[in-house]
Nucleic acid binder design. Sequence first.
RNA 1: GGCGGGUUCGUAUAACGGUUAGUACGCGAGAUUUUCAUUCUCGAAACAGGAGUUCGAUUCUCCUACCCGCUACCA
Length: 538
Amino acid sequence: MERKTRVRFAPSPTGPLHMGGVRTALYNYLFAKQRGGDFILRIEDTDSHRFVPGAEQYIIEALGWCGIRPDEGVDENGKVVSVPSEKHPHAPYRQSERKSIYRAYAEQLVRDGYAYYAFDSAESLAALRVEMEAKGETFIYNYSVRGKLRNSLTLDAAQVERLLAGTNDWTVRFKMPADRIVQMDDMIRGHVEVNTRTLDDKVLWKRADELPTYHLANIVDDHLMEITEVIRGEEWLPSLPLHYLLYEAFGWQDTMPRFAHLSLLLKPDGKGKLSKRDGDKLGFPVFPLRWTSPDGEVSRGYREDGYFPEAFVNLLAMLGWNPGDERELFTLDELVEAFSIERIVKSGARFNADKAKWYNKEYLRRKSPAELAEAFVPVLEEKGVSVLDGEGCAASEVKDFAGRRFSRSYVEKVVALIQDRATFVRDFWDIASYLFVSPAEYVEKDAAKFWKPENTALTFELAAHISTYDKPLEKAGLEAEIENYIRSREWPMGKVMNCLRLALVGASSGLGIADIVCLIGLEEFGRRVERARNTLGA
RNA sequence: GGCGGGUUCGUAUAACGGUUAGUACGCGAGAUUUUCAUUCUCGAAACAGGAGUUCGAUUCUCCUACCCGCUACCA
């Protein structure tokens, strides 16, 4: 019988999710949605020592920002579900709240001979490890040493009972077979085999906190939650044999999920995988959202750096996957359509900040001016420019340069003309501040180049002519008028235009003269020319 | 050290035994433009090395090198 596709993203709330984690979640999501399946969020908080407050909420918020919404595990308020319901039948989805489930499974394995109780203390193991390493031997806790240690395999039943009841630092360990080749299949890497001889008797359950370790909790929950595919990071590949053996020991082979191990995201320059530490150091965020750690340390995020979630998702998807053709721009829905595990790349991907910016630029230029204006408003207000909304201003556009008040329709017009020139919304101010504030000073170098008596005389004459323009202010018409005026007099076009631009912008860069005049209007135009004349001289 | 994974221009990638090894970002040069930006055109830039298998290997096998991961009562 064909099972419904169910995948899960199972982060550990030990800190903010970094972009590699988001990519893993994204690939899981895409896989599930493509097959009409479920994407489940499960919180793996079985390490009580590494719990970080706020991390869980961060993970949910980050996924939400990306548009990745779990079908199960998180309720409509963005909280991890603890109580089972029709929509969330497998609750709780936080492993710490599933504590009671795991012990029985651990005991089942002991009873069936696949695991045993181990009574060695952490200190005695550490000592043994040091001792063996001193002799040049590698310490592996497996068949080779378990016979010499204190456990339910070497101690008699009565003693085991006594230790089980009377002490609380024992563990349940998996009894790794001595010499067996485990044959595995990975959806990305193909056939993989490992001899159990090199593997160790992993701890499955700890009496001290009555919590399972990752391996047990993971297998039990994936089974209980009817997970069909496990798509996770490459760091888990070495423990895949153990996981196979656990499914076998439980007798769950027939419903064992298929596995896909994703390569890691590497640092752009140096060596090693992208880690949480090297965010600011490398000049780009490693986190989707800004994160303030409990001790007050702040790490930047893509959201706060001005990236659109669509761009972030897109660039992440293309880091280790490609559609097989030359398309590069995909919305989340398009990714759902195009995604395929077969086209995931095996090797690790190095993140490239320039490409990330390019993606944002592409999305920015595709956005509507209305949406961009909306995002630009806070920036304007920060700069002391107020944006007027509402009924009154629709009819008559407000552009009050001295009072720094502009109607939203004006902001939209500005944005429409500059959106091709920006990578982020925050670039707008640098590109277009002169469309809101008269230039207070003039770039010295540009002034020296263009503000010369032979140019200014002509410029003032042109400005005077423009001021008398009585047709509706509209780019094409005004542009033709200006060009015509200059050409018919055989004036040097570049010199005059740049001289005038200097007066309007304060520099010899920026939009076309006609565009600027149409935006700021004749009145402001006249003021700027006057001001330049007074400041720079005629 | 042991085990596993990986290796195509600087980066991300295409190629699934036969190609002038393609594309994108970035970089360089031109063109367009009233400046800047955009846009357009062109250019430089890669099969880690060595053995096999084959009529023929970037592609298959093995070895070496390098990179990455794991080797915790962390995930």
